[in-house]
Write a protein that binds this DNA or RNA. Structure first.
Lengths: 151, 151
DNA sequence: CACCAATACTTGCAAATGTAAGTTATGTAA
DNA sequence: TTACATAACTTACATTTGCAAGTATTGGTG
């Protein structure tokens, strides 16, 4: 029986620690791959989300991705300047915008799944197919409860 | 049967997306709690890691947490300036330092588990005890393979 | 031992991020 | 109908980060 200190057991058993650490790995790999593909790494999460659902406002976009709203605001500025997305006035509220992908944004978004899949496969190499399904299913459940939004 | 677009199924099935999103949630909650506790949020990961194991060099510290080495370097500057850690020369190599917590660092580190546990419980509220064990176990396995280190 | 590559760590600079405060528009309730 | 809180979004400023290039030391190879 190998000796494991309390602290070690604790850190390795922290869900937050684990997700932060793995998120760093995913992020740095994504940056490198997106650079190769000529896609701006700053916008990939929003791009992916909008390709799933457009015509939502910035708040909703931020909530889905757990991004603070100032971050959505800035990322959208970038996407608009790159011609990937556009803000249209919300007919129901003059203070909100509805966000839509442009054709170019949609085309760019289509190139993402291949990259994301490849990197996920790299990161998940230690798990078999069933375990991958399992961990993904559990993480999705963690997301569900709403997890009150960011600042 | 509710209609789910391919894109949605895809994003929600991306391990990387899920960990990044959940890491953002954990991070923002940790920041708020650490601020209340008067602990510098920049150093908490290193502090926790070092309370588990000291006397390692900066490379090893970075590798364990998947931090790039420049980040370890700067975080240690902060920890040293706050009196939480110290760099001692490595007797085996003049280019390396061995990092140790000070007494103050150790005391501070002792206050972390309570905070981390509380936030993990908040984030994981959607899962029962068994599922928590399960997801943590799987995430640990993902960490294992080495996941070649950062830049 | 002379060379070159790799290791361990640091740093200048540009880019990105968090905080807090701002604007404008809506909802509510006296 | 005015007043006051909240919603949706933006921005100035300071802090933090990533990248790329730097130093110094060590390990190997001919």
């Amino acid at each position: 029986m190998t000796q494991i200190s309390k602290a070690q057991a604790f850190r390795e058993a922290s869900f937050g620690f684990l997700t932060q650490t793995l998120a760093r790995v995913f992020d740095s790999k994504m940056r490198a791959e997106l650079k190769k593909a000529g896609i701006d790494h700053r916008v990939f999460a929003n791009l992916m989300m909008l390709s799933e659902e457009d015509g939502i406002n910035q708040r909703q976009l931020g909530k889905a991705l757990k991004f603070p709203e100032y971050s959505v605001s800035r990322n959208l500025d970038i996407m608009v300047s790159l011609g990937l997305a556009e803000r249209r006035p919300d007919p129901d509220s003059r203070r909100a915008f509805l966000v839509y992908l442009t054709d170019s944004g949609r085309e760019t978004a289509q190139r993402l799944p291949e990259i994301i899949t490849r990197i996920n496969d790299e990161v998940l190499e230690g798990l078999d197919a069933q375990e991958r399904q399992q961990v993904i299913g559990l993480l999705r459940r963690v997301m569900k409860p709403g997890l009150e939004n960011m600042s």
